[in-house]
Design a protein around this nucleic acid. Structure first.
Length: 273
DNA sequence: CGGGCCACCTGGCGGC
DNA sequence: TGCCGCCAGGTGGCCC
């Protein structure tokens, strides 16, 4: 479930049950997700208090009172359920708090990861050292993008997916933001005017905000930790709409699916330039 | 070095 | 039914 809006939604759902609470009874049901669990994973988490939960890029950071940060990434299929006692296949990590809340990390494909990192050294950690700018960071401006990509001939689709430039966007929201801006995913980054970067950034922020408000997008399963569905998928204009009519009022075209850098891209050939 | 491709996993779905 | 191929919200290593 994991682009920026979905991670934001998960953080939001976890806070009331985890922040200021003490972790106990951590149980791992296998040795690894994408990577092995770090040494003493269970021991270092148990009795620690969660001070604050925040999102960085598509990572969930749980800052603990023992100078460590619990890093969680949901990969493609990771989910966290709260207070749902039924146990399912692929429930890989289970934990509780002293307040008797019960948490389950479920991840069929195991592209997710968990790690424990010294909080003061987070920025140097290999997962975070090369990350680009968050879309909601004021440092990210049209002027910055225009300048930074002035000689970059890569297609916009791959530039926007590149987490070393802007973080948080994934396949869905890149397709949506480009469609909203009438920009082709094949358009070379260096050919955008400052005005076009301005429009594109505005649409990126707009689509992300709307998706967060909607609780994220749910493609196959529950999105939010409380089991509620995210419902932004009902507002998709491009993603998953192959063969359907373009929703741009002044356009008679339809949405095409192509494979770009190994991933599906949905766009309108007629009105995206 | 930059960038494209493919692997990492499991499951669901459509077609035959 | 059952089997097969394709597809899926991400990342990172390898190879040119």
């Amino acid at each position: 479930m994991p682009e920026l809006p979905e991670i934001e939604t998960v953080c939001h759902g976890l806070r009331p049950f985890l922040e200021n609470n003490i972790i106990q009874n951590v149980q791992t049901n296998r040795d690894n997700l994408r990577y092995p669990f770090p040494p003493l994973f269970k021991e270092r988490l148990e009795t620690a208090r969660v001070l604050k939960i925040e999102r960085r890029a598509k990572y969930i950071l749980l800052h603990l009172d023992n100078e460590l940060t619990w890093v969680i990434h949901l990969g493609m299929s990771g989910r966290i359920r709260i207070n749902e006692e039924v146990s399912n296949k692929h429930d890989h990590v289970v934990w509780t708090t002293q307040q008797d809340c019960h948490f389950v990390y479920n991840d069929p494909r195991r592209f997710g990861l968990m790690d424990l990192v010294v909080t003061s050294k987070l920025n140097q950690h290999r997962l975070f050292a090369d990350l680009g700018i968050d879309p909601f960071d004021a440092v990210l401006t049209p002027e910055f993008l225009h300048k930074a990509l002035a000689t970059n001939k890569r297609p916009l689709k791959s530039v926007l997916l590149d987490q070393t430039i802007i973080v948080g966007l994934g396949n869905i929201y890149v397709c949506e933001a480009l469609w909203l801006t009438n920009l082709s995913p094949f358009r070379e980054a260096n050919t955008l005017s400052l005005k076009q970067w301005d429009k594109l950034l505005e649409n990126i922020l707009c689509v992300l905000k709307k998706a967060i408000t909607a609780g994220g997008s749910t493609l196959k399963d529950y999105s939010q930790p409380n089991g509620e569905l995210g419902y932004f998928q009902h507002q998709f204009n491009a993603y998953g709409r192959e063969g359907k009519q373009c929703l741009n009022d002044s356009c008679k075209g339809s949405i095409t699916r192509v494979v770009q850098a190994g991933r599906s891209t949905f766009y309108c050939i007629d009105c995206s330039k």
